[in-house]
Design a protein around this nucleic acid. Structure first.
Lengths: 200, 200
DNA sequence: CGTCTATTTGAATGTACTCAAAAGCGGTGG
DNA sequence: CCACCGCTTTTGAGTACATTCAAATAGACG
């Protein structure tokens, strides 16, 4: 059950067997059916989740009721709202399952105390956070200076697997465009499929 | 010289006097004149900089030669390219001074070894990183589902001081719009200044 | 004062959205 | 097995948001 998780951590920092046992003893297992929620906007986030199987979306619903998808998360990634946990403020995001999911989760307060017992764990999360931060910086640049068509081509190149698993209108929401417009982009690209390959 | 830096760190984690002395002994001081570069796109980032005085921009220049400003940084903030340091890859960003600057900087490799001597330092940077990540998530949501006008109003409310210090065409670049269009937004808002206050 | 850079203005154009409707597609029940 | 239902995707017309290009003003600085 913990294989994927332990592998993911020890790829980044080396842990002793004792540390691995201590660490995994604090995780719990959870399954989630498609469309179920892990976190609802307005709640305070208490847990961080590691995905063994399945796919989830993190999204924000604004005052006008419009949904914006911040991210998709799949196997071998963490999901949760760091901001909410850290500040104790209600979360600005909801998280829900796009497929049936299998997760491991840990209480954020327990995690903080574990940092003291296993300092390398703090390093592991600092490094993950750094990667996530870098990726989001990249996405900002992409969003502010590329057209929707360029962003879509980037998306399917970067996440070819996700493109298969996720309905198109959600991809549109992630890209910040309407489903109608994404449909038109796809039609346009289909007529010159070379462009996608050439963009390598 | 180290007052601001030490204050900033000890606001987040408590350090002993010995730790403070050890830490500050590894920092160097640097001044930068307006328009000088701290890092050029393509270089590998070696240092993290803490800003004592002044203002800088982090930006990317794409193949077409268009500049996109990723962030502005001022007093009491860190600046540097974590991605470049972490991967050893050339940086995708340049950093340059918008005003004469006074900085403290530390070699990233030295910083990594200091983490082992002062574990709390790792916590400090993890927390900073978390805040930076959260802010960039927020900006993504803002960028994908708000119009340029809404983003501009958000910007001047969030960074009223920056608005004064930074030329308008750079604000436009940060917002991902043309300077001409920002000018038109400002004219429009000027006619109904209530909107800005009402958006509180 | 002149020069250089930043900002404003306007017209024409392109990019993306809204609204309405049609077509496609996967289940479910008769 | 087919008919129907609900949901996703596609299409098209009209509109709004944002850009480009060119030119006029305004500001900063030597």
């Amino acid at each position: 059950m913990f294989t994927l998780l332990v592998k993911h951590i020890t790829n980044v920092v080396s842990l002793s067997n004792e540390e691995i046992i201590l660490l995994t003893s604090h995780f719990k297992h959870k399954t989630l059916k498609k469309k179920q929620y892990l976190l609802e906007q307005g709640e305070v986030a208490r847990y961080e989740y590691f995905i063994i199987k399945g796919c989830l979306k993190t999204f924000n619903v604004n005052q006008a009721g419009e949904e914006s998808i911040l991210s998709f998360s799949t196997e071998n990634w963490w999901v949760g709202d760091l901001y909410s946990f850290w500040t104790g403020n209600p979360s600005s995001y909801s998280i829900s399952a796009l497929e049936d999911c299998e997760l491991l989760y840990i209480d954020n307060d327990v995690l903080e105390t574990l940092y003291l017992l296993i300092p390398k764990l703090e390093r592991y999360f600092r490094i993950l956070l750094k990667n996530a931060y870098v990726a989001s910086q990249r996405r900002i640049i992409l969003t502010i200076n590329q057209t929707a068509e360029e962003r879509y081509i980037d998306f399917i190149k970067r996440y070819p697997d996700l493109e298969q698993r996720i309905p198109q209108y959600m991809v549109a929401s992630y890209l910040g465009i309407t489903p109608e417009f994404l449909s038109k982009i796809r039609r346009k690209i289909a007529h010159k499929p070379v462009a996608v390959a050439a963009a390598e």
